[in-house]
Amino acid sequence: MTDYRNDRETVVVKKRSGGTIIAIVVVAALVIVGLLFATGFWSADVTKTGALPEVSVKGGELPKVDLDSKEVVVGTKKTEVDVPKVKTEKETLSVPTVGVKDNGEK
């Protein structure tokens, strides 16, 4: 009797759906904004409270917010740094050559 076995491995790849990727991006954005407020990089002072719209044609009011953000300053300064110099020189060397000799040549 002959025994037949399948020795190959089967790999199942699970792909994420579009909704999962969008959810991950939204959560990452919320975490970044939360960190900016928690570290003091952003601060917000609410100067007027918001109101829900009345049951009329007039819409509601958004709260007035005074948002202060830190300033990022980018510039340059002079500093001494060791920089390696590469120099080339000419020398005469014997190098191997490869050629093809025709039957009629000497």
Rank of each mutant, 00 (worst) to 15 (best):
W42S: 00
V98E: 04
V31L: 15
E80D: 06
K64I: 04
V12G: 02
T76A: 09
G40N: 10
D102A: 10
S17V: 05
I32F: 15
T88M: 04
S56C: 09
G75M: 07
V46C: 02
L36C: 15
G104T: 13
T39A: 08
T88K: 09
G104E: 12
I21C: 03
G60L: 04
S94L: 08
F41Y: 14
D68H: 15
D45E: 13
G19A: 07
T76P: 08
R8W: 06
E54L: 11
A38K: 14
A23E: 11
T76F: 15
N103D: 06
D7G: 02
W42E: 00
L93S: 01
V81C: 11
M1A: 09
V83S: 04
T47S: 13
V25C: 01
L35H: 13
I32L: 14
N103C: 03
V72G: 08
G60C: 03
K101C: 01
V12N: 06
V25G: 00
E9G: 02
T79G: 04
D3G: 00
V27M: 02
W42Y: 15
V31A: 14
S17I: 02
V100F: 12
K15N: 03
T92I: 12
K58P: 05
V57C: 03
T47M: 11
L30F: 15
P53Y: 00
D66I: 03
E105G: 06
T39V: 15
D82L: 11
V12W: 12
V13Q: 06
V72C: 07
L67N: 05
T2G: 02
V73T: 15
P63N: 01
T79N: 05
T10F: 05
K90M: 09
I21F: 08
A38Q: 09
V25D: 03
K70E: 08
K58T: 12
